[in-house]
Simulated scan of single mutants.
Amino acid sequence: MPDVLLLGKPGCHLCDDARAIVAEVLTEFPQVSFAEKSILDDPELLDAYAEEIPVVLIDGRVHTIWRVDPARLRKALQ
């Protein structure tokens, strides 16, 4: 089953929007694991994604930057 990771940071309104969309889509995929990580907690992630959050990774690969398209996420998880 895929793993979904949301990279963001506190106070990021786009991250809040992404979290809501991901959570909604994942209700259809209860077998998928989900985690969140703040880029502020990891210097490498901060360097890589400081200007690109939120980032959604599926199985460690970038799926989406900035805005999450629910239909695209559903398709990737099928």
Results as ranks from 00 to 15, higher is better:
C15H: 05
L45I: 06
V4A: 06
Y49W: 10
G11K: 09
V32L: 05
I58P: 01
E52D: 07
L77W: 02
R61F: 15
L77Y: 02
K37Y: 10
P54M: 05
R67Q: 06
L7E: 00
D3I: 14
P70D: 09
I53Y: 13
K9F: 05
K37V: 14
A50H: 11
K37L: 15
R67H: 03
D41Y: 05
P70E: 08
D41C: 04
R61H: 15
L7W: 01
I53P: 12
K9P: 02
D17A: 09
L7C: 01
C15A: 10
L14F: 14
E24K: 04
M1G: 11
C15P: 05
V68K: 12
L40A: 07
P2S: 01
D3C: 14
L7S: 00
A18H: 03
S38W: 07
F34H: 12
I39R: 08
E52Q: 08
A35T: 15
A71E: 10
M1Q: 15
I21C: 15
V4Q: 04
I58H: 00
A48D: 01
A71N: 14
A20H: 07
V25E: 09
W66V: 13
D3R: 15
L14Y: 10
H13F: 14
R19Y: 00
Q78F: 04
G60I: 00
V68G: 10
L6Y: 06
S33F: 13
D69F: 05
R72K: 13
V25K: 11
L46Q: 08
G8N: 04
Q31K: 09
K9I: 01
V22P: 01
K37I: 06
L46I: 10
L73C: 09
I65P: 07
L73W: 06
I39S: 07
I21W: 13
A18C: 00
L45Q: 06
D3M: 11
M1Y: 12
D16Y: 13
C12Y: 03
R67I: 02
S38F: 06
D16F: 13
A76R: 00
E51F: 14
Y49S: 05
P10Q: 06
R61W: 15
D41Q: 04
A35N: 12
R74I: 03
M1S: 11
L6Q: 11
A23V: 08
G60V: 00
G8E: 02
I53A: 14
R67T: 02
